[in-house]
Design a protein around this nucleic acid. Structure first.
Lengths: 358, 358
DNA sequence: TTGTAAGCGTTATCAT
DNA sequence: ATGATAACGCTTACAA
């Protein structure tokens, strides 16, 4: 309907600015800005309509960077991950990213590559982009440890790992409940001698909590099972693990059956390799339940039982918490402990033909 | 040494700006800016020293957003991933992210969640943040397909998947070479009847290239092996796969041994599950080589042979290409095809005790 | 209700 | 070699 309006500038390719829209609509820049920010409160319908038409015609989109510079909000969320290679982190990331996108935020990712010294640098870099908040799944240890000051006054939510000096919202698997479920299931199936294998604690809260929960369970008066803990470092050779498993069986009392609880899928992988090396079969010589439920858990005969983490929900909850804080919610740090799901497969079942556990 | 200098402003917590540094050093803002941008060319040593001291004292860090607004560069790289859940994508992401960080760039991540319609929205969102370039690992299909216009004049590099309408640098596994190596190995080990299983092609270039390479190999005059292709969709039930495998063996000529080549680790997972269902053993009833080398490949007895992708190198090369373009490199689109690494495990070895393949 | 003008923190073009 | 000053695209007092 309207005649084509050749842009006055020589380069019509550049993104239109708020000034272009203002000119097109015959109003001031402020009015266009108000169209986006305070439309209902203070803008007459006819002017609003003209602005809207101009915006549509020029396909104008506000520049978040300019908005950030002026207004101080960037619609950006900084996500710091200890290790993108870790499937758990990625799964959480996915949930968080989705929730953020739905709320109109973009996620800036920073991967620590497991280098704890880079944590502070990561946060500073993100902060320099005026991110509105942080989602942190990091070590929380070492030189560059994050503290309240580092966050430049922006809210943060911690995922999976608490930080000593940081009173922020915290979202994680209910480690204690998950451990209780795993051990109760093993015990009920007749596995009485348990070995919990974890990566080195190194101050990582989730590892510590799982280990403590395990210790509490096996040392409780009412508990019928015995238990030991093994910290297994990546640098340690397979002999260490093989030896530990051999010892486990050797030290069992007559008739006492042994099972391993793995602290996460990294450990699960090593245990599965070890069992393969020994020529054992899960559910026979050795029972097994692992934290995390990797896609290949059902491929290891006769299927690895696992406590699946609600990773997507954790990510979404983290994003939700953060967005609430960004929107001004005050109050003390909150804690969301989400329940795990015990997936029972062959590795933890009492073998058919064996004497009944009851 | 120097006496404490109480900040004149009431809020000493705010990040220092270039103006603060200028005041502290007793110079103009322009001089401070020059200290960062054209230090060597035009700045006297003594002034430079004063500026440097002020910067150190105030712990000043330039604001990338303001720089982006003014100068047009954001030191940001937009990374669009079809699916963060895909370990391949993540591995590449990791390599790219590392290279970008080393070059002083930050990575903004956008996950499509395999929704091809969101590709355009992702690029627009990233572009609105003035990203200096794009790394794209996407579908390149559907409504929101990226084209040159979408990129807002910013350079892009394509990873793993070509786009029809996009003449950008391209980095990927050498699919043809990898397929040749996989098939040659199988043939040499005596597997003569091959079934290539791929996810539905759907216009994805890597899938198409692998499939075409396979077809060319098995139909070549000099080839001693026969071959078939199966497109297996996620929606299709396991019966389809089980039937295909059963047919494969049934249709083999007497003495002809059958093997599967899997197009990626998703397919590998399904094939491994199927073989487990049938009670077969890899390397016996069925030979196997898969594209991608997931961490659990060695756990499936007797070990799954695989063509490992140089994911880290692919990511780094992608970042390198992009940074070169950002720094002004002109010229036609380049192609980097990186070689895969054949990892031989039991699944593709001629079983001991079987008649010699030679 | 709408317009004017002063920032936000940089960089770049002028002068000097 | 250094200092004003005008952008960059937007928001928001303050005026009208």
């Amino acid at each position: 309907m309207s005649p084509p309006t050749p842009a006055p500038s020589a380069t019509p390719r550049a993104r239109p600015t708020i000034a272009d829209v203002a000119a097109e609509a015959g109003v001031s820049k402020a009015t266009v800005s108000r169209y986006f920010n305070h439309r209902e409160r203070l803008l007459s319908p006819d002017i609003a309509a003209r602005v809207e038409a101009a915006i549509a015609k020029l396909a104008y989109v506000p520049s978040p960077m300019a908005q950030a510079l002026s207004h101080g909000r960037s619609r950006l969320i900084g996500l710091v991950v200890a290790d993108v290679t870790n499937p758990y982190s990625v799964a959480v990331l996915r949930g968080a990213e989705k929730a953020c996108q739905d709320a109109g935020y973009l996620v800036m990712l920073f991967n620590l590559g497991n280098d704890r010294e880079r944590e502070r640098a990561a946060i500073d870099a993100l902060a320099s982009y005026q991110v509105d908040g942080f989602i942190l799944n990091t070590l929380g240890q070492g030189e560059g440890q994050a503290d309240v000051n580092t966050l430049h006054g922006k809210p943060a939510v911690l995922v999976d790992r608490r930080h000593a000096g940081l009173a922020a919202d915290f979202v994680s698997l209910d480690n204690q409940g998950a451990m209780r479920e795993a051990c109760a299931h093993l015990q009920q199936q007749g596995w009485q001698r348990l070995l919990y294998i974890t990566q080195p604690l190194l101050g990582v809260s989730s590892r510590i909590e799982r280990t403590e929960a395990f210790r509490a369970l096996v040392s409780s008066k009412r508990s019928a099972v015995r238990g030991t803990v093994l910290e297994l470092a990546a640098e340690q050779g397979d002999e260490v693990l093989d030896q530990a498993l051999t010892d486990l069986l050797r030290q069992a009392r007559p008739g006492e059956r042994c099972a391993v609880v793995a602290g996460n899928s990294v450990v699960t992988l090593r245990v599965a390799a070890a069992v393969s090396r020994m020529g054992w079969t899960f559910g026979q010589q050795l029972g097994f339940v692992g934290f995390d439920d990797p896609e290949w858990a059902s491929l290891i005969r006769p299927g690895l039982s696992a406590v699946a983490q609600p990773t997507d929900a954790i990510g979404q909850r983290a994003a939700q918490c953060l967005l609430e804080r960004i929107n001004g919610l005050e109050g003390p740090a909150r804690e969301s402990l989400l329940p795990g799901l015990l997936v029972v497969r062959g590795s933890s079942l009492w073998p058919a033909g064996a004497p009944d556990p009851g």
